[in-house]
């Protein structure tokens, strides 16, 4: 039985306060009346939330965009990464092929996304998908695909070859072995990687900022950014929109803590 170390417990509580208080402060500010925010008082009010959706505000459309981008990115990334990860892990590709593809993945992870932005901008324009949801979905897939593939390949590598061979001997096709036999066995991996990709795509800002004009084709992160202006008096709505964006993620973090930790540690190391 470990004895309780009060100094460790105390330091941990202080650390948790440093982490949690800024987030709680955000939520409190979002429910404060605008004039009280300025004069440093507090009066409960929903007006910040009401103001977000007033008039011809693009916020509603942007929340919808972010949902579409996050879900589509996750579906496409997971489908492509599961196929490629399994292929590279089990279907007998040469070391050279595997090496080249994993090398390209590593490079995409390594270089700052901003250095690719000039090229991505002209390529999206060329294909006519600049300032559009398909364009943003493709770029989100691009930046999540390398690590998702590497992660899932590790999960597939851990399975014994005999599973696939047994399926083939029983007369199942390669597709069927993959879909009905192998994929169910890596469900924990799919869950961890999938939740991680979902969060990454929901949080994405740089591509939304540079590849859209910020209107009703932009994700919600760009909508928040347009409220963050040094001199403007938009603190209330800014806090309200920030809270709307962050609370679902925190709830997800509490429910799916195990998967998120697996995704973050794996994603971090592979990234």
């Amino acid at each position: 039985m470990k004895r309780t170390s009060w100094s460790s417990e105390t330091l941990l509580v202080i650390s948790m306060i440093i982490i949690a208080v800024p987030v709680i402060w955000l939520v409190i500010t979002s429910f404060n009346a605008p004039r009280e925010i300025i004069s440093r008082g507090f009066e409960f009010s929903m007006s910040n939330y009401v103001r977000l959706f007033e008039g011809d505000s693009a916020i509603g459309a942007q929340i919808g965009n972010s949902l579409i981008i996050a879900v589509s990115t996750t579906v496409f990334t997971m489908a492509i990464a599961a196929l490629a990860g399994y292929s590279l892990s089990s279907l007998g590709w040469s070391r050279t092929t595997t090496g080249i593809l994993l090398g390209i993945s590593a490079l995409i992870q390594l270089i700052p996304p901003m250095t690719l932005v000039p090229g991505l901008y002209v390529v999206l324009q060329q294909f006519g998908i600049l300032n559009s949801l398909p364009g943003l979905i493709i770029l989100n897939v691009l930046f999540n695909l390398p690590f998702a593939t590497l992660m899932l390949k590790v999960y597939f590598d851990a399975l014994p070859d005999s599973i696939r061979e047994a399926g083939l001997v029983d007369g199942a096709s390669e597709q069927r072995v993959f879909w009905s036999l192998v994929l169910p066995l890596v469900k924990p991996g799919l869950a961890a990687v999938g939740i991680y990709v979902l969060i990454m795509a929901w949080n994405e800002f740089l591509m939304g900022l540079t590849m859209t004009t910020g209107g009703d084709q932009a994700p919600i992160t760009v909508g928040i950014a347009s409220l963050v202006q040094p001199q403007a008096i938009t603190y209330g709505p800014m806090a309200a929109l920030g809270s709307l964006t962050v609370v679902p993620i925190i709830i997800l973090a509490i429910i799916a803590n195990k998967q998120i930790v697996a995704g973050l540690t794996g994603g971090a190391v592979k990234g």
Binding site: L26, I199, N203, M238, I249
Partner: peptide
């Protein structure tokens, strides 16, 4: 202690502006 890593960077900025 994991919270900040999953909060959108944009929201982190909002938090710190406040």
């Amino acid at each position: 202690l994991v919270w900040p890593a999953i909060i959108a960077p944009v929201v982190v900025s909002v938090v710190w502006v406040l």
